[in-house]
Write a protein that binds this DNA or RNA. Structure first.
Lengths: 150, 150
DNA sequence: GAAGATGGTTTGTATTACCAACCATCTCCA
DNA sequence: TGGAGATGGTTGGTAATACAAACCATCTTC
């Protein structure tokens, strides 16, 4: 087994562990993992339905249903685009923003024992390595679309 | 935002990225993410239904249904435990083992561009850091139960 | 102005996830 | 030794998620 194999194993294992934490926290707020992601994405921007779907790797009908359920809970709102009548833009309500903040707080608190095992130098090093893994540069993963809230 | 916040953000982002890769590969083999995990766990062992459920953080009825569908595809088999009539042990069929190996190959191939961004020293360092994150020691995450295949 | 593309919704279907209820088996104790 | 309680697992019901197909409204291109 090569070093690369070890990294893949470690990445997969960490993925399921972190996903498990996120799923538990989502459950506490009556949110699925995908809903968590949607709320995380829309915290500081509005986005088009098809852009959200593409970003999340979901079918647009799935995205539409997710938005339906979040809208029904008063967390998201759909709005028209004045320049293109086909486009629906999705953005968060104040209640949605509040829930998203509480969820983020819970996630940080839940992962604190995990990150607490690392000293500051290790923390910096891990961030750097994970950024390389995800080929991240500033805003590399930004969802296309306007960011200003209505 | 503290260094700990950065790590949490990086872990969450990497989690969704790797999960996306796994979901795509799972889709190519007509397997959900959870089915992928089950096949990964049972590659080298047999396990009790309730142990699998606990390990995956799922309800036992969900576990039962997952096993049903895998069994229907000829990937898993249920067997009795001679010492305890209540217990059902699950293990993989030859077809299941073959599929699990192909899936693992695909996962390694899919993540090669990711790990390819790191040099050998970085690879070792990342493994070490992720092992600390998941508080891993050898076999720390072993599912309880017999490991010998029938 | 029509054809084709795009954005989004709706409908149908299968799977996943949980909860409650149930049955079979095991353990413990009077 | 038999009954109570616990455990292992399955089944049925329900909601959410995911995709595919079909559809409608709007935009773009020729």
């Amino acid at each position: 087994m090569t070093a690369t194999d070890d990294v893949v194993d470690a990445l997969v294992r960490t993925t399921f562990e972190v996903a498990g934490v996120l799923t538990r926290i989502g459950g506490e707020h009556d949110l699925s993992l995908t809903q968590l992601r949607v709320l995380g994405i829309l915290r500081d921007r509005r986005a088009r339905v098809t852009d959200l779907a593409a970003y999340l790797g979901l079918d647009k009908s799935t995205m539409s249903g997710l938005i339906d359920r979040a809208q029904r809970r008063g967390l998201l709102t759909r709005g028209r685009n004045p320049e293109d009548g086909r486009v629906v833009e999705v953005y968060m309500t104040p209640a949605g923003l509040e829930l998203a903040e509480r969820v983020e707080d819970d996630i940080r608190r839940a992962l604190a024992p995990v990150t607490g095992r690392l000293d500051p130098e290790q923390l910096d090093r891990l961030v750097t390595l994970l950024d390389v893994v995800s080929a991240r540069s500033p805003r590399a993963d930004a969802v296309p679309g306007p960011t200003a809230a209505p």
